[in-house]
Design a protein around this nucleic acid. Structure first.
Lengths: 156, 156
DNA sequence: AAAATAACGTTTCTTTTGAAACGATATGCT
DNA sequence: AGCATATCGTTTCAAAAGAAACGTTATTTT
């Protein structure tokens, strides 16, 4: 705990501090979209993410969803339970491993996503209207780079 | 609720769905950084944000912090209380308005931030090492555009 | 000036979250 | 085979978060 004040106090501007800016923007976007999911379909963000991944991959276990979404297993378990009760997804014990559950969308789940996805994409469209096509691609490229860098930092 | 299935089912790929990508990346970054704050300084994210804004603006009320950070007033109130108990910030009733509190860093709060900020900036530096200077500026430009667009959408 | 309304920040109450304990199944070791 | 260890998903328990009610002070209306 050296308190040598020799070096000048460093400057921090939150507006230009990337972690803060990203967190803030992502939070605003999530909130806006969450409202739509909640109002139109009575889905939480966790539920929406699970349905979206199942729509894309057609069959996943709970632990795979945990990895894909970075949500912890309790949260996933609860969301899956709720979706199961609404019969939007089906669970079936795996043959090879009786511990895990194979999750997949039911007809109703498919139908709901067929309605929900266009809304989500339309909303995203309105948002990214702010960007040109090139900017949009750039943005993803930059996000990918940061993601990759984060992988490095975490494993290091 | 037209269920005319004339148009083909729209495609959604979460990896290329901006709200999801942003939320996911921001969450990973927040978590990494939160660990540092917690381990080194026993600060929550809410507490860190408040200290950082006070470092920058030197004096703010709780409701101003709510606006700046998009945190609700209960969360801010609790974080402020905790920081006050640790004597990292001081509260003083405003003269013009006896309801609000003028918050500012104490000496100890300044000292803590003098230690914390370099760590935060160093961590950010490691992260954005993934980007060139131009890419870094581009990223902020794009984030700014999205923020502005979001303002439009919200007020509309 | 009095009464009604609104704003600031705290507290209470309810819901959501994450960590750890758990039952059940699988795997690895001797 | 038998025992230890690890993994899957659920549940329990404790901490964190948000919504609404509150006390207090300002502002607006009549």
């Amino acid at each position: 705990m050296s308190h040598a004040p020799s070096s000048p106090p460093p400057e921090l501007q939150l507006e230009q501090f990337l972690p803060y800016r990203l967190a803030h923007l992502a939070e605003r976007i999530s909130q806006s979209l969450a409202q739509i999911y909640a109002r139109e379909f009575e889905l939480s963000i966790a539920e929406w993410r699970i349905l979206a991944w199942l729509h894309q991959r057609s069959s996943l276990t709970a632990s795979q969803i945990c990895e894909l979404t970075d949500m912890d297993k309790a949260r996933v378990s609860r969301a899956v339970k709720s979706l199961g009760e609404r019969e939007l997804l089906a669970r079936q014990r795996t043959h090879r491993d009786q511990r895990s559950m194979r999750l997949s969308l039911t007809e109703a789940g498919q139908a709901l996503m067929a309605e929900a996805i266009p809304l989500a994409l339309a909303w995203e469209g309105e948002l990214v209207d702010a960007l040109s096509g090139a900017e949009y691609r750039d943005l993803f490229r930059l996000l990918n780079k940061l993601d990759a860098r984060l992988d490095q930092l975490v494993e290091a």
